[in-house]
Design a protein around this nucleic acid. Structure first.
Lengths: 194, 194
DNA sequence: CTTGACATGTAAATCGTTACATGATTTG
DNA sequence: CAAATCATGTAACGATTTACATGTCAAG
């Protein structure tokens, strides 16, 4: 139920329409909390019904600008301070690792190396954002500081993942050395545990 | 749609009932891909309908043991090799960071330090698992190797998160020094951007 | 006057969680 | 025989994705 709070958070920067918010979700929040158009308009309706946001202006093409209400800001603060973040991570990438024994060591290594490369590419694009952000030094404005902190998480995460993937690929080498003959192909033949 | 593949993966270790699988999900897979009982039984039914698994034995209390079919193993391999993992992470914890500007620097710091502590606790419990696993040296059996690789990810991830959170809390100190008077409480008064 | 950007919404399907419901078997 | 464990399922609700549907305005 955090899309709700993401919307409230974005509206602290000033009023915006669903369309505006959608662009923010696609651009800056895409890596943290993706949202689709459907979901967003639905949530805006529900937030307005709940009195957490309200229409503050109407524009051309039926444009509705929403602004945060007092209740909305209070709810955002409550969520930030009182509600514990859910810690579990459903990671597709890691789930696969558990089952890499069913493909050949070469295929497993290819998988791990690819994950390392994906992380490296991610890190590069974040580095670019960093250099842009760090240039326009905004005198420690809170937003810049917290945005920079989130960015740093991404930088460290991708670096960690890259190093881990490379390490992991090397570990698989050590199986390869012992099981060269036993490696099953993709032919769909029998199970690993007889 | 990866619960499906998690189930297929677990069944490569041998036939199991829904009840058996549920325990595995709660114990070893809980941190990577949580699943509830409802979801699991539903998925088992659908997998059986699709011919990817089949009932290989029936026990007491209506127990049904499912085993992987050839088609199921082929599907698992296809998923591992051909389907790219989805990279986006919906991280509650990080979403909040973006909005920490709406609470006081002290509260923001408390939040970040708590996240560091959570990571530290997670890391400790993984370290314990590691010491257990590393003792019973299973001669590089593929399962032990890949399980160990996944565990290593957790160790590195929690270490990274702990260090990041501590770094982040120090960054907030630097705002605190400049904005000591401007910090809003939890009283729900006005917005940061008038 | 056509294209592209702006702008909002609904419908159907799938996935996930919580809670409910039921009953059989083993063990002390 | 009572309690714990084994064992499977359904119902209701909320979150998410994909696709559909509609219409306005500005610029070339």
């Amino acid at each position: 139920m955090s899309l709700r709070h993401a919307v409230l958070g974005l509206l602290t920067e000033g009023p915006a329409s669903g369309y505006d918010l959608l662009k923010v979700f696609e651009a800056s929040l895409a890596n943290v909390w993706p949202a689709t158009q459907s979901q967003l308009y639905g949530e805006l309706g529900r937030l307005a019904d709940a009195g957490l946001i309200e229409v503050v202006a109407e524009g051309p093409r039926g444009r509705k600008e929403y602004g945060l209400t007092e209740a909305g800001l209070a709810e955002l603060r409550r969520w930030l301070i009182e509600v514990e973040p859910e810690s579990f991570r459903r990671t597709d990438m890691l789930l696969r690792v558990f089952f890499l024994g069913v493909v050949s060591p070469e295929q497993a290594q290819a998988y791990l190396r690819e994950q390392g490369a994906v992380a490296a590419r991610g890190r590069e694009s974040l580095e670019e954002i960093r250099s842009t952000v760090d240039k326009g030094d905004l005198e420690n404005a809170p937003l810049a500081v917290y945005g920079r902190i989130a960015l740093e998480w991404g930088l460290r995460f991708t670096a960690m993942q890259q190093e881990w993937a490379e390490w992991a690929a090397r570990q698989v080498d050590r199986i390869g050395e012992r099981h060269t003959a036993a490696a099953p192909g993709t032919d769909g033949s029998g199970q690993s545990r007889p």
